[in-house]
Design a protein around this nucleic acid. Structure first.
Lengths: 336, 336
DNA sequence: CTGAAAGCGCTTACAG
DNA sequence: CTGAAAGCGCTTACAG
């Protein structure tokens, strides 16, 4: 197999079409303010096509000072389908603007900054809550533009996930309507998603105060059917008057399974509400009520923002907000 | 807010430490074959630290001919948790080799080639089956090295997902052991994962022949509890003698839910087996039996491969294989 | 309407 | 042991 021959450069295209590499660049980038004759344009385009010319992005990046990549940051603390739902419209938006979308799974913020320094992306679109300080660091590291999920109000506040507390509050509001006088909040004993679970719990605690309910009993349980059943059985005396909120639907489904093992049924023995609205929650028996955060038209918002920054003066590094409905939605099913 | 001052370059570091930028490069890259005095090394390191110097990756890429990025390709046709499980060890492996891992969600192969042309990655690690032709294209587009899930045998064969057929075969082998004489295969009516479902069905069909069973009844159903219940009720006469295999656990859980609505129970009325071993499958009632493909030590295989290519002559563009256990595993639970 | 030339920031063969 | 210089492939201000 012959060694892959050198990849064609703008110079090669120029030579073939009998113009300078500058003209090639003007034609291929449709540089505004450059009038190139139709005949020349045509020759250049034909030559580029013939050679299969693809600009060397690294050279462009070096010259321009930033790449044409949009780095989409995924929050690994979100459940998979939550990310998937947001990702698709975002990737779509980026592609439709002629930019290259790359996904980065957020492990640590330090690591993300390293990637940004490496990539010098045109923009970072963070599908996670970002503080003003973090956005500042991202721009300092070389991201021209930063967009993220965040609320103007909470900019510098911890926790960084204001929407999560709202999920906890909404779970309690729903349970309170159903009659229970006592709340149990079940979170996973160990899980990478524990930080989110804790914010949800905090929201639930707040809402219990507001509703005049006793503080919720927080139960850290392993994702193990038998262990959960055992823990629930010690709550025997609470049957009939208790609502259970779980940190997510996975735990909610596990609780329903454990209840079945105990011969208990929802909502009579315990009313159960989960979070994140897993697809599976509709299919279990009884179907699981769930609270989640709907994301507003991400695609449209992103396209509009990218177009604005692309046509902008090139200097603006302001951040923008990704669409975000502050209100959590409760899908009521038979478990509560 | 003052405009961000120019980012420091190797030249700045050189000036501050009183050496040339060549020496800076030698020190920072620990260039073999260059003897730099300890004193100089120290001064350079100190100056780089002081200025917060980070090499401009685009310049390095331009000069070197490829970047230090490993592009990890995710197959969006796999379910989220399948990808997540593979992704973690891979990202870990890449980081531990001092390279930058970026994730790309495979939409189309053409689009992936575009990203590779843009990024000129050091390597592409594809968490999807890749044909020899595709790996060839990837290298032509600028990926120095390519690694992927694939079997040497099936290199040029369609379908590109040999493991999926094995899932279907294993589902049938399991059901056949349980006594059913008739097989129903349930796949989603519409789903982005339909291509995978169809390969699984084909595997199931093969295995039915091998087991001397009648060809499976293939049922395309929407992910809708009532619609599934209705479809199942027309199978009334098959109760007690039929095994149901579903294209994945989501559909399996939906089938169990629909059966509950009909007052049927698994495994007595229908023995049910799903695929992909969702975490939730253990928690539904009855717990769902599931077949999945375990991935072998991805991290170790990847690290070994990266180290080999990094220390290699720099010219080799051969591909390697990611760890892959050809055997599917069946987690037996009470639904079958 | 088009081209010659500079320069983005690295890396490395070469000269000392 | 260290430095001067070339060059990777673009883009763009400038000159014609």
């Amino acid at each position: 197999m012959p060694r892959q021959s050198r990849r064609p450069t703008a110079g090669d295209v120029a030579r073939l079409s009998g113009v300078s590499s500058a003209t090639v660049s003007y034609v291929l980038n449709k540089s505004p303010g450059q009038k190139i004759s139709a005949a020349t344009t045509d020759r250049v385009l034909r030559a580029a096509e013939q050679l299969g010319y693809v600009p060397n992005a690294a050279a462009g990046t070096l010259r321009r000072g930033h790449s044409r990549v949009v780095l989409v940051v995924i929050d690994t603390l979100n459940v998979g389908h939550t990310n998937a739902r947001s990702l698709e419209p975002l990737l779509d938006a980026v592609a439709s603007c002629g930019l290259t979308a790359l996904t980065y799974s957020l492990v640590s913020e330090e690591d993300l900054l390293g990637v940004v320094r490496t990539l010098q992306p045109f923009a970072v679109a963070a599908l996670s809550f970002t503080t003003a300080a973090m956005r500042q660091s991202l721009r300092a590291a070389g991201a021209q533009h930063v967009i993220g999920l965040n609320t103007a109000e909470d900019d510098n506040l911890e926790p960084k996930r204001p929407g999560e507390a709202e999920i906890g509050r909404t779970q309690i509001r729903h349970l309170a309507q159903r009659g229970p006088t006592r709340i149990v909040y079940v979170l996973p004993a160990t899980s990478p998603r524990l930080p989110i679970a804790q914010v949800r719990l905090r929201g639930a605690q707040e809402e219990c105060v507001r509703q005049g309910l006793r503080a919720p009993l927080a139960l850290s349980l392993p994702l193990d059917r038998h262990a959960i059943a055992e823990a629930l059985s010690s709550l025997e005396s609470l049957r009939g008057t208790t609502g259970v909120a779980t940190a997510d639907d996975r735990m909610g489904i596990a609780v329903l399974g454990a209840m079945a093992d105990l011969g208990w049924s929802a909502p009579d023995d315990l009313a159960v509400v989960g979070a994140d609205n897993f697809v599976e929650s509709e299919f279990v028996t009884p179907p699981l009520t769930s609270v989640y955060l709907p994301l507003a038209n991400l695609r449209a918002v992103t396209v509009e923002w990218l177009n604005k920054t692309l046509s902008g003066d090139g200097q603006s590094t302001d951040h923008a907000l990704l669409g975000w409905d502050a209100a959590a939605e409760c899908v009521v099913r038979r478990s509560s």
